[in-house]
Design a protein around this nucleic acid. Structure first.
Lengths: 206, 206
DNA sequence: AATAGTACTGAATATATGTACAGTATAATA
DNA sequence: TATTATACTGTACATATATTCAGTACTATT
């Protein structure tokens, strides 16, 4: 599923709200009325973009033939116990039993992607990304990392949560979201970088 | 609710099946095709009968403007489905059905306190508190508010998420967590301040 | 500099759709 | 017996609706 723009999100929300309110999807004109567009083609182009990106399907020729594609509803509502692992300044967030602080019962399809454990955040190096001390990051163990992903990285025995940014085949920058911290530049030829996984969600209890 | 005839039941079932299959209601012609009628008026008269008996509602003039009226409104009290409500700049986040964007299955004891619904955040006025755009705030409907709590407040029809700070019996300050925004000072003698509830947790999908 | 994506306005049009009107027929009800 | 509800066919038409075409403008990427 590709990225959605803010305007496309507005249109998608508008469709969902309209369906909840009336029981049937809106026309192009209805969307224009709700969002203040003056041409039905404004709605049309957004709908086509949403269709292209896989958020909705459009029945050709049919009036109000819009349906929202829900990709986390088809998966069953199975709940599971997920471990909560503490991120210590010098320590590895493995699933070793001694690192499991407690568990949280949570539906398997809770986030947009499956995940493996919760990581309890220490420090404020990602505060500008809305990740605060003691927040729980839902971590998916994967090596499928793209630039801009929030990753759980280990260098030697140091574990950290940062933005991932591959500068060149051999250089990776781990970027904090806090002006008080500096980028960590990793030269893969000299240092070993292990990516534990990436963040697919966040949970905060207050 | 009056009695339903067998043919009307067939039509009602047809509508439900069509909605389940496509996501939107059928046209008169669609019903004819499904049930073997040869005139759209056959469907029309059945629809009018179903409407008269209260099984469906028909939006006049609108294509596919059929919606099935659900009489078994048992909002299953001990269910784990929590509604997600959009926070619109000028609009109230009530539990009115038209504002419910979707629901999230979640254990009742998920946060440290019980809660009533999720609120989808718009804007960045609380970014320094780690609340970002499109985050879902778990809202507990309560009037038990202490200074420093993150509250969902309504002034006139403006709804906002801010820190709560009672300065004096008559003065309440609503404080953002973003240097680009200013405190909202509410004189309770002059303005009406309604506290929808407070944040007891946060959920982010990325 | 060229291309592609987003975000719109505005006009035009083929057709999809609701809906009225004219019939026929059967069964139940007042 | 007259009336009403059910259960259809068939035709017709105004309009609701999807959809295309022609523009403008901004932004990001190549």
């Amino acid at each position: 599923m590709k990225e959605i723009t803010s305007q496309q999100q507005r249109v998608l929300d508008c469709i969902q709200i309209y369906i909840n309110k009336t029981g049937f999807p809106p026309t192009r004109a209805d969307i224009c009325k709700e969002l203040g567009f003056k041409s039905p083609n404004s709605a049309e182009t957004h709908l086509r973009a949403l269709e292209k990106k896989g958020f909705i399907s459009i029945e050709s020729g049919a009036s109000r033939g819009i349906s929202i594609i829900n990709n986390d509803r088809n998966s069953s509502i199975n709940s599971d116990e997920y471990p909560v692992i503490g991120l210590v300044a010098a320590g590895s967030p493995t699933l070793a039993e001694e690192n499991i602080m407690n568990t949280i019962n949570c539906p398997e399809s809770f986030f947009n992607s499956s995940f493996d454990y919760f990581l309890k955040v220490k420090g404020l190096s990602m505060k500008n990304a809305g990740i605060m001390e003691d927040d729980l990051i839902a971590v998916k163990k994967t090596s499928d990392i793209k630039n801009g992903d929030i990753v759980i990285a280990r260098i030697d025995d140091e574990v950290t949560v940062k933005f991932f940014n591959r500068k060149s085949p051999k250089i990776v920058e781990l970027e904090p979201a806090n002006e008080d911290f500096e980028n960590i530049v990793v030269n893969l030829e000299q240092e070993e970088l292990h990516i534990e996984g990436k963040s697919v969600g966040l949970l905060r209890k207050n």
